[in-house]
């Protein structure tokens, strides 16, 4: 178990493409960190550099107290769970799990004991003598987990491990992985493009875009205080509503003049206003006109999609709240409004 430290880590491919711009962060011992972002954002490259599968162009990577830049993957004291599991197809489940240990000259009895423990933990005991091809997707996923667990590594790396599973199994495995990590207390880095996985599993989330870190924070911080319009629109389903607004006469005004909150000291010009769908109320006395085009019924709540002036807008309504069609009026909860620079997209 160990702290992980990245110091201005950068990746430039031989063709000149900069996949990861200089990035620094620190992961304390035992923390579960999720790297999230759209495909091509550099999150997998970053993970693979930490694993040692990809060369680090610049910067320093340490795991524990050791700088591991030039260290072979096998000597980094890590374990990795791959997207397509990467099980050895010609080995039994037992050998798949034991293989890494056998190469570390650990005595047979210890290996057998650890394999049994892991198998019990993951409900794999009765499959130990099968080949991966004879297992279901969820079982293969568990074998991949088992292979990681038995090594007692300093660091777990997960590369989109759930993306090949169906939705139901994915939810179940999400909980299992999180619980397992809690139990073992091993520092973990988890890469995904799924913001729900990021929100539910992470102690801290690192949101990446275009090779850069957009924000680092707890799920709560990232969701409620996004650092940029990118984070605001990437996290949450439906995403945060973003409206074109202006600073005028000391107020933030939307929709060509309607004031919604006081402007921060002495600012003028354009601004982007962000508000989560659940921070909006249908309110006949409200002063913002809204036209509902479509209601999505989701059981416990509904989503109302429509037009606010000439911009699209969504509202979250609980099942006992009114869900009008057509023209209605809204009010926003001013405390929950986020303002972003309309040029840079950064939080004001």
């Amino acid at each position: 178990m160990a702290r992980v430290h990245l110091e201005t880590i950068r990746k430039i491919y031989p063709n000149g493409f900069e996949a990861v711009t200089p990035t620094s962060f620190d992961i304390p011992d035992g923390e579960f960190v999720v790297l999230v972002g759209p495909s091509g954002c550099g999150k997998s490259t970053l993970l693979r550099m930490i694993a040692g599968l990809e060369d680090i162009t610049e910067g320093t990577l340490s795991i524990g107290d050791r700088v591991v830049n030039g260290v072979d993957p096998a000597d980094r004291d890590i374990a990795m769970v791959f997207q397509n599991y990467a099980l050895y197809p010609h080995m039994t489940v037992r050998r798949n799990i034991a293989y890494g240990l056998q190469n570390r000259k650990i005595d047979k009895a210890t290996i057998e004991q650890k394999v049994q423990e892991a198998a019990t933990m993951l409900n794999l005991t009765e499959y130990l003598d099968r080949k991966p091809a004879q297992l279901s997707g969820g079982q293969r996923q568990r074998v991949a987990m088992g292979r990681a667990i038995v090594r007692d590594p300093a660091l777990f790396l997960f590369d989109e491990p759930l993306s090949n599973l169906d939705a139901k199994l994915r939810n179940q495995m999400r909980i299992e992985i999180k619980a397992l990590q809690r139990r073992l207390g091993v520092t973990s880095i988890y890469v995904t493009h799924d913001q729900v996985e990021a929100m539910t599993m992470a102690d801290r989330i690192i949101v990446m875009n275009g090779g850069k870190v957009e924000q680092i924070g707890t799920p709560h911080e990232v969701y409620h205080n996004p650092a940029s319009t990118f984070v605001a629109s990437f996290m949450g389903a439906p995403p945060m509503n973003l409206l074109e607004a202006r600073f005028e006469d000391g107020m933030v005004r939307i929709n060509g003049g309607t004031p919604v909150m006081p402007a921060p000291a002495a600012r003028t010009g354009n601004v982007t206003l962000g508000i989560r769908p659940e921070d909006v109320r249908i309110d006949d006395a409200g002063d913002i006109p809204f036209h509902v085009d479509l209601v999505e019924e989701l059981g416990a709540h509904r989503l109302l999609h429509g037009q606010l002036g000439d911009q699209t807008f969504s509202i979250h309504a609980m099942k006992d709240e009114p869900a009008p069609q057509g023209a209605t009026r809204l009010s926003l909860i001013p405390d929950n409004i986020c303002l972003f620079d309309s040029e840079t997209g950064k939080r004001i």
Binding site: T23, F25, I27, I216
Partner: peptide, 8 residues
């Protein structure tokens, strides 16, 4: 909690 400006 560490952040991006952490120096080692």
């Amino acid at each position: 909690m560490a952040d991006t400006t952490h120096t080692s």
